[in-house]
Design a binder for these strands. Structure first.
Lengths: 256, 256
DNA sequence: TCACAAAATCACATTTTCTGTGTTATAATT
DNA sequence: AATTATAACACAGAAAATGTGATTTTGTGA
């Protein structure tokens, strides 16, 4: 078992039980306490957990769960599956918009294979990745940088979007219930909606676990999307209610 | 001597003599030819030089000299000096604009010390750096990414600037002659001018070696700037002609 | 056009450098 | 006083950089 696996596993343990004991995990992984100390120190520095005497805890619901660096690590397999399915909608030569979010970042990676392509995004992770690549025209959306979402937002972003037009917009959402999708942040919602307004085709990418939750702001009616991509069939109420205009695609995880 | 030092040194040799011989540098650094082959291969892939039988050459004036990755390495000491002098104009709490360019990137680093601060920039290097820092509000300017300048340009960028306002704009120029400064790229000029228009105070940063040169497009009359920062006194004709409104500051290299 | 020498490339061996881990000693906390 | 945390050093294995020699390519002059 490698270092990063072990750390990921520690995070997973924390997500389940909210606290871990140092001796405990040292024994479980068969490494010395010192090694675990170092793991916890690094994870603490990364803002993922809080070290306490004898172990570490995670104050769920606070900054942690909404932290980009954490979400980035979670459920990577599901994200990859969704990204790959989404990538099938894209042909070389197209112009696509991709919003903030760690899943979107994975999609960005996948789309970089489809050269030539034009990518419009406010997602800093994608910008960083696409910068170096020839064959990828990168249009960065400006705005005020948000460390929480690792992306740019605000009037500047929305204004820029009002002047652009894409073939497809890929939008992700952290919550959906019934026929509506939700997001907790107003500025983020406005940016996502601006992307939808500026694209011919709209695609929602959503982890199946996010169904049944809501958040402060309504993002969109699922029927507004041409395609909805998830990793499991949609809940019955949602699916039944969805008009014929929206296609639902289920991504299946490829084992690699 | 480490790998990167050696490669930097090879670049420096090339800048001076326009061509190097493989056997020659292998002997000079006391490494095998194979190692030099690999150095040259990588540098060629990076677009810095061209391999020819028996060595490598650099076609001066072409893409190489205008490549961001190269300029970044050159005259780091002068850049630091200019940046430090420029930073003196900034107080915590201010809003500053910084344009593209490697010198600007160094300034970006320096300004990150002056927290709290708001930095508005189209310079990807600065965005990357400022992202992580608390106390620094980063407003990224969107636009079409240019790998050549490692920054964003175009209508989107200019529109964004038209909606923003800063205390100081730091602008750099690759050429100046008489009372005018120049730049070879039209889109870059437009962005720089938009920054000037959106700032109360304007500051030009220019390496003294750039005087006496011109480029395709006029960037600005030096008298439009409130402050001009360079590393040596301005040429006589330039200095004499400059009205009283513009302050000239000479940066002196700090030895560290 | 051919032959031949110089140079480039390839594949693999070797060396060096880094990274992760463990151990022990010392300091801090409960 | 007992436990837990930190710091300093040592070590092994992995990864990166370099070297070596065999093989292929390239340029040049007969």
């Amino acid at each position: 078992m490698k270092r990063e696996e072990r750390r990921q596993e520690i995070i997973n343990l924390l997500v389940e039980s909210r606290a871990v004991e140092l001796d405990d995990i040292a024994a479980r992984f068969g490494v010395s306490k010192m090694t675990i100390h170092r793991d916890l120190d690094d994870l603490e520095r990364a803002g993922v957990l809080r070290k306490v005497r004898g172990g570490a805890t995670i104050d769920a619901g606070t900054r942690f769960e909404s932290d980009f660096r954490f979400r980035e690590l979670q459920e990577a397999d599901v994200k990859r599956a969704l990204a790959e399915t989404a990538a099938e909608l894209v042909e070389p030569g197209m112009t696509v918009m991709i919003n903030d979010g760690s899943m979107a970042a994975v999609l960005g990676d996948a789309l970089c294979e489809k050269k030539p392509i034009t990518i419009i995004t406010n997602n800093a992770a994608i910008m960083e990745r696409a910068k170096g690549l020839s064959g990828v025209t990168l249009i960065g959306l400006g705005g005020v940088f948000s460390a929480k979402f690792n992306a740019y937002f605000g009037i500047v972003t929305e204004e820029a979007l009002s002047r652009l037009r894409a073939d497809v917009a890929f939008v992700s959402a952290p919550a959906a219930s019934g026929r509506l999708s939700y997001h907790m942040d107003e500025a983020v919602v406005r940016t996502k909606r601006a992307m939808m307004a500026a694209s011919r085709q709209k695609c929602l990418m959503i982890n199946s676990r996010r169904f049944g939750h809501t958040a402060l702001h309504v993002l969109a009616d699922l029927a507004e999307f041409d395609t909805v991509i998830s990793d499991k069939p949609l809940p019955h109420d949602t699916a039944a209610d969805l008009g014929g205009r929206t296609t639902v695609r289920i991504a299946k995880e490829t084992l690699s």
